[in-house]
Amino acid sequence: MTRSNEILTYLVLGLVGILGPVFFENYIQQIAVLWIMVLMATTWDITGGQMGYNSLGNITFFGAGMYVSAVVQISIGYDVAEYTAAFGAIKVDFTETQYFTGIYLGIIAGGIGAFLISILLGMAVFGLRGPYFAIGTLGVAVAAGQLVGTIQYLGGGSGISMPVYPGDADERNVFFYILCFVITLVSHFFLRWLYGTQFGLAINAIRDDEDKAEAMGIKTATYKIVAWSIAAFFMGLIGAVFGNMIGFIEPLEVAFPTATFGIFMVAMALLGGKGTLWGPVLGAFVFHIIKETTWTLLLGWQWVALGTIIIINIVFFQQGIVGWLQEIKPEWFGLTVDRSKNPENSKA
């Protein structure tokens, strides 16, 4: 994007981020979830859009971060096995210091845990390409949810109640809102920097022709795993925050919601325009607004409405909103096009 457009966009986003929860106090959790969705879509786009590897399993890292943080936070005051086995029956009391030490350590551990898991998984799944990679990663996410459900140490299928926030509800909402907003901002600026380095070029090259990249000496395997682990790190961080924000975590609906958030993040990136920095951000906004509106106004038909939007997007509008804008207004993005040629010949 050109400089002035970019400054304008950041200004609008900053205003939404800071003034949104001030003026619409009742929607503070909604806006927090919006930032989480922005993070999901933008980090999915690292591999999905920029590198051309459509992962359906990034939600694994969301859940992994959540569970790692839960274990870290609980173990500060209690024995984890005892805590989860009692399922709320033992009297839990975290002091304020314990709580905040726990949550900050937990979030960082969640990020690092997810990062490490993604490296191991990456070594296995990046041998796959195209649709096989998509299905392989989907399998990983589904398996992760089922697997965690069998581990009694982690509360099994009945989940874990997270430590309770020491303070009133409004303060709690603001605390988690700020965490979501800040982590999403950090991830955005990190990716913005990343796409401007050699790394950004290399993953674009892998997207366009992986065999050629390999033949030019680029260490494609390393790039692929690093790209995925960056996404995993941020997903782990935000997963840890989300678990605490909800207050109760369990494997299928909260930690590894493959069929909802796992798919939403792909849908958002596609809607906004994959392979662009801003597409997934815009996609997340549009998607979240449509989703919440249909939930309110078309209750009972909300899934049909959402499905229709995804179908229209995939069939008629594959390049997404930003991709379409780049085609009709390339000068907004500082792109150069050869006007002398007519588009039919350009495929040659």
Binding site: L201, A205, D208, A213, M216
Partner: peptide, 20 residues
Amino acid sequence: TRIYNKMNCVDNMEISVSQR
């Protein structure tokens, strides 16, 4: 011919530097 066809020429060149 194999090039990175969604990137511009300069980007194609920059990513082709020696990886030695």
